[in-house]
Design a protein around this nucleic acid. Structure first.
Lengths: 141, 141
DNA sequence: TATTAGTCTATTAATTCAATAGACTTTGTA
DNA sequence: TACAAAGTCTATTGAATTAATAGACTAATA
């Protein structure tokens, strides 16, 4: 399961992606519309800003807006930002790699082979799932 | 990430699958060979027994052995047993289904659509990953 | 009947998750 | 220029989960 943080982040991003470019949206608006505790949301948006996905404007008339193109924001990146690795086993991640204690030879490990395949497929799908793609899927029903 | 419990369970199952049918294997042996804390392993094996995957024999000459055929034990079932749902979102699981608070219409939700696809692909792969399959992959390198 | 080996219940330490509180800083505008 | 709006930062907390440990109990075999 992904954390609430990640889910909230995705909801907020989709919400912002539907607004006009560069238009600052209040945290309080996102919080109310998407039913996300405001203080919690503040931290999330800040992280998304630090990651270069969002930008913000302070003071009156301020708020958050998408910095990256909705085409360039995918679910794999968002999940990694908040939940860490997507892989189900540490010996199968790229950035957070950790060797298994009990494993003699990693290359010939049947368990690893299975979970490597799962990871690759999942990452593939999540990378294709951009904000644009998510909005497209919404409309098509 | 899967829990250590699940990982230990898989390691223990693969270990048992390599032994002769019906031959009871000591908990202590599995614990040592697979580097799993013995007390922790006891609980795991008990759960696998309750799930009908393993059987045990008490007293001298006792131990655990596979009850199901290695062909019928797959990673999806094992993961579900210890870690619960495989899906990344509650609105996309079968048995643990929960509606999203903020979602107006589930059928047309673009986020859900993405994560449903991820879930289905993952479950597919994990169901094919039986103990037999894992052992086959080990040899093939 | 002693010994071996699995079963059961309870507890604990550590970590992570989700949320909250409050003070601080920046900025637009009256 | 001062006030109010709105984002930023640091700290804390409660709950839940994970990983592991301890110890008493029960069943089976030689």
């Amino acid at each position: 399961m992904i954390s609430k943080k990640t889910k909230y982040a995705i909801n907020a991003l989709v919400y912002l992606a539907k607004k006009p470019l560069q238009q600052p949206i209040l945290i309080s608006e996102i919080s109310e519309q998407e039913k996300i505790p405001q203080k919690f949301l503040e931290a999330i948006l800040l992280d998304l800003k630090k990651a270069g996905i969002l930008a913000s404007k302070k003071g009156k008339g301020g708020g958050y807006f998408l910095l990256k193109s909705p085409n360039d924001v995918n679910m794999a990146d968002v999940m990694r930002l908040f939940d860490g690795p997507i892989a189900l086993l540490p010996c199968v991640t790229h950035k957070y790699y950790q060797k298994c204690e009990e494993c003699k030879d990693e290359e010939s490990c049947g368990i690893r082979s299975v979970f490597l395949e799962v990871r690759n497929q999942t990452v593939d799908l999540l990378k294709k799932a951009t904000l644009t793609e998510i909005m497209k899927r919404e409309k098509s029903v």
